[in-house]
Design a protein around this nucleic acid. Structure first.
Lengths: 221, 221
DNA sequence: AAATATTTTTAGATGAAACTAAAAATTATT
DNA sequence: AATAATTTTTAGTTTCATCTAAAAATATTT
């Protein structure tokens, strides 16, 4: 069965909202991310349920069905591969690629995606450190931690971000933070939960809790 | 003013139908290429006229306005650059890229197209020999001739094709014809207007008039 | 130039995907 | 547990791009 642009967007957004936990997703949460009204979401959820891509009981929220998840993972795969292309081959910065990839993810051609994957030398992650699902719909589990959860005195490496917004990514760039940055958590400040972090052996800077929550790291060694 | 997917397709198709001559384009001609019915075309032409992109008088056919032509040339530029990408970087054959480029041509990002152009080293033509309009909307005039119009005894080089359909391109490939092939027109056969042509110094083969009409060449020297 | 054929337009309808406003269900609060 | 607040759904519209069938205009033939 074929998917429209709008349907693909809904499935992708329900997928994003489902990551990590197993609870049902609320109509309002979907409406916020699709930039539509709750009433429009209700209509679409009924339609997606009819096609068998979501489990939906009215007033109880949605969950992706296995088939829906497969479609969503296909979209995410395309999105992330195109992001790698845009950064690695086209020379964009990591904060410039999201909107373009939102469009490219809907291009329909399996052979193109396989060739693109090969051309990019089978990347494992996108420019924000997010894992790229395999062609058969498996999302690698990278098991990173949030910088906000790291104890003082630990060393870690910046592996990804939990938010793709340009404004957030630009801030990280200004702070000299990028994928691969070596971080040393000097102190967790009780007052505002900010963290004092030395980046690549430079003198420590303060990173707000809000930012630290959205930075993904792996512990050194 | 922004353009929808459908509007862009109509403008592109009216552009293609206008190439070469200056007459107005008929509703039916547009309907055939857009794969819609004449009634739908009438609706859209009225809409495009309101937006100032075409000159349209009912029952008298359409022509692109200068603004409409500019938009159409932008779409054609994107289409052809993406075709170069698909063949040169992704490894597709020339008969496989049209449908994918039909989708990619609607991706909206000026900076992406400029970066793609640079990445491809500013190609002048697409994989079918069609010229790529410049960023400021100028279509280079290449002035090729149709193989069907070449006199017996002349040498020429295959520079392009006048038709992008997969079935036609596959036939050329089977005949060992590709861009750059050196052609010697041995004879024009009066009976069926086929041409006896030696390709890259090999023994001559027959090329039907129908095929010869769609092959673009430049005379040698 | 009349009659016929063809092309194009109008009128009215349909399906997708959105909307607003009001009603119904669920959740939270007193 | 009753009331209030919030969330979600229903009902009825809207816009876009398409359709069919019928009417009107143009082109072709006799």
């Amino acid at each position: 069965m074929s998917t429209s642009f709008a349907e693909e967007n809904y499935l992708k957004i329900i997928y994003r909202l489902s990551e990590g936990h197993t609870d049902d997703i609320s109509t309002n949460a979907v409406a916020e991310l699709t930039q539509t009204k709750a009433a429009s979401v209700t209509d679409m959820l009924r339609k997606l349920a009819e096609k068998g891509w979501v489990n939906y009981q009215k007033y109880q929220g949605v969950r992706l069905s296995p088939e829906g998840e497969k479609i969503a993972l296909g979209i995410v795969r395309k999105h992330r591969l195109w992001e790698v292309f845009l950064v690695e081959k086209m020379g964009f910065n990591w904060d410039e690629v999201h909107e373009i990839a939102e469009q490219l993810e809907h291009i329909e051609s399996d052979s193109l995606i396989e060739k693109l994957d090969e051309f990019l030398e089978f990347p494992k992650t996108d420019p924000h450190g997010d894992p790229i699902p395999s062609k058969n719909g498996v999302m690698p589990e990278l098991g990173y931690q949030h910088l906000a959860d790291i104890k003082a005195g630990k060393r870690c490496v910046l592996m990804g971000v939990a938010k793709d917004s340009a404004i957030f990514l630009q801030l990280l760039t200004k702070m000299k933070l990028s994928l691969g940055s070596a971080l040393y958590v000097q102190e967790v400040n009780a007052f505002d939960r900010s963290v004092s972090v030395s980046i690549d052996e430079a003198p420590a800077v303060f990173i707000s809790h809000e930012v630290a929550k959205n930075i993904l790291v792996k512990l050194a060694q």
